[in-house]
Design a protein around this nucleic acid. Sequence first.
DNA 1: TCCCAGGGAGGAT
DNA 2: ATCCTCCATGGG
Length: 328
Amino acid sequence: MIRYIIVYLVSGRISLNQKTFEISKKDVNGPMNLAETMASAQTSEPEWSKDGEYFMDVEEFDGVPVKYTVTQVGTVDEFNIKVNYFGNTLASRQLKEHLKKVLGLEDDLCAFYRKFDHPEEPLSQTFLRLRGLRLMRGTNLFESLICSILSQNNSVLLWNRTARFLMKYYGKKVRFPDGSNFFLFPTPERLAKVKARELRARTSIGYRARPVLEASRLITKGALELERLLSSSYEESMETLLNLYGVGPKVADCFLLYGMAKFEAAPVDVWIQRIVEKLYFKNKRVSKSKSAEFLRDHFDGWAGYAQLYLFDFARRMTPSTLRARKPN
DNA sequence: TCCCAGGGAGGAT
DNA sequence: ATCCTCCATGGG
């Protein structure tokens, strides 16, 4: 408590403690659409809270929690990304590098558009509207894995809520100079100790309690090392992940893509399945594994990005257009 | 009330 | 290999 008082005194007026910098267009590889990126429901972590045009998140740097907001001014091609944060000792460069990674600012979007921008490629229909949509990366592998598990047969609204509950009940609480609090995502060690019954009662996690707890316990025991997968091939990582209870091809691909930025991964959910059948298989039914294989092959290194763009495409189609499929 | 949500396990064909 | 059903939970 005394430490907080001292911090207040030393920092003077609280508002002056807030610092600002910009990420300019020249720091970004191509166009950027922050709002679309934030709204695209990627499963690496819960959606950032939104205050007007500002998106807020918290990240620890060398054990020091930093709360920051980002907003984009200008257009998708002529823009600045404004970043505000609280902190006395943080080098803004550290936060800038963090954001470049999280928001995928180094991904060569123009190369992606160029490669598939021809009339016979249905994906190209999304490029105008989704221009600047980027693939976010989770910064915490455990969080990414758990969020991917939570999203299974669940709505974005509900799995986000459950993730927030996990943070609230089992995550470390951090305070900021402006008086606000935040709960970090819990560690596997902390979650491993929780009883399934308690978890269900507190977080509306449903039957996903078992896969979440089992993964937490495996990691705690050292029987599962997510960091090791970073240097593994897509196939090896996939094989390891499929051994986890409650983790199938779609959840594994979500983690591999959004958590580990393996661009070969193309999570095939019901929506991707429908749009792939419609656009690339003349509305004929194909298995999910076929769809995933097709995406990896057809989009050659850009499968994850293609999936991200196709997902939006699918969600915008009217249900009657999309669901009316030939039986065979 | 029923159906669905960025699926998966376990079982039966 | 492909096709069922069930799985918790809450929103529409």
